[in-house]
Simulated scan of single mutants.
Amino acid sequence: MRPLPLNLRDTYGHVRMAIYSAGLDVEIRSADHLPNGMMGCYSERTRTILIDRRLPYVAKRCTLVHELVHWSHGDDRCGLHEMRTRAETARLLISPTEYALAERMYDGNVWRIADELEVTSGIINDYRTLLHDRVAA
């Protein structure tokens, strides 16, 4: 597994620049349109991450971190290992303490929690799945 020596909770622009500053062997590119409603994709063959340029910056950052998790594992195609990648992305982007506070502040409202934590609602739902799986185990 390749290390991710970055502050992944930083802004999209800062994370992207940190990737190049750290000399990580991955290229980040913008795409005008990705197929099937995809927000991003990683190719191990070319070590390239594509991010849909139409996304808002919060979604771009969440997508970039998601694709960096694919890169860190050397995943060879988009779409594989999604459950693992989604769980790891949620863990990387959400502080348990900050989540617990936001959950209480906003009475469980996923959209307001996501806005408070500067992530997408999908990341919040993935984090909730992690919490549920931990309790069930």
Rank of each mutant, 00 (worst) to 15 (best):
44 E>K: 14
44 E>N: 15
44 E>M: 11
45 R>W: 09
45 R>S: 12
45 R>M: 12
46 T>E: 11
46 T>P: 04
47 R>C: 13
47 R>D: 11
47 R>I: 06
47 R>Y: 10
47 R>E: 14
47 R>T: 15
48 T>C: 08
48 T>Q: 06
49 I>K: 00
50 L>F: 13
50 L>C: 03
51 I>R: 01
51 I>E: 02
52 D>E: 11
52 D>H: 13
53 R>N: 09
53 R>H: 11
54 R>G: 07
54 R>P: 05
54 R>I: 10
55 L>H: 00
55 L>Y: 00
55 L>A: 00
56 P>R: 01
56 P>G: 01
57 Y>S: 13
57 Y>W: 12
57 Y>L: 14
57 Y>F: 13
58 V>S: 01
58 V>C: 05
58 V>Q: 01
59 A>N: 03
59 A>M: 04
59 A>L: 05
60 K>A: 03
60 K>C: 04
60 K>Y: 03
61 R>C: 00
61 R>H: 03
61 R>P: 00
62 C>G: 03
62 C>K: 02
62 C>Y: 03
63 T>Q: 03
63 T>N: 03
63 T>W: 04
64 L>R: 04
64 L>F: 06
64 L>S: 03
64 L>V: 05
65 V>M: 03
67 E>P: 10
67 E>S: 09
68 L>A: 09
68 L>E: 07
68 L>H: 08
68 L>S: 06
68 L>V: 11
69 V>M: 08
69 V>D: 07
69 V>C: 07
69 V>I: 15
69 V>A: 05
70 H>V: 07
70 H>L: 10
70 H>E: 09
71 W>R: 05
71 W>F: 15
72 S>D: 07
72 S>L: 11
72 S>Y: 10
73 H>L: 15
73 H>G: 13
73 H>N: 14
74 G>K: 13
74 G>E: 14
74 G>M: 12
75 D>P: 11
75 D>A: 10
76 D>K: 14
76 D>Y: 12
76 D>G: 15
76 D>F: 10
76 D>C: 08
76 D>S: 11
77 R>Q: 10
77 R>W: 09
77 R>H: 13
78 C>Q: 12
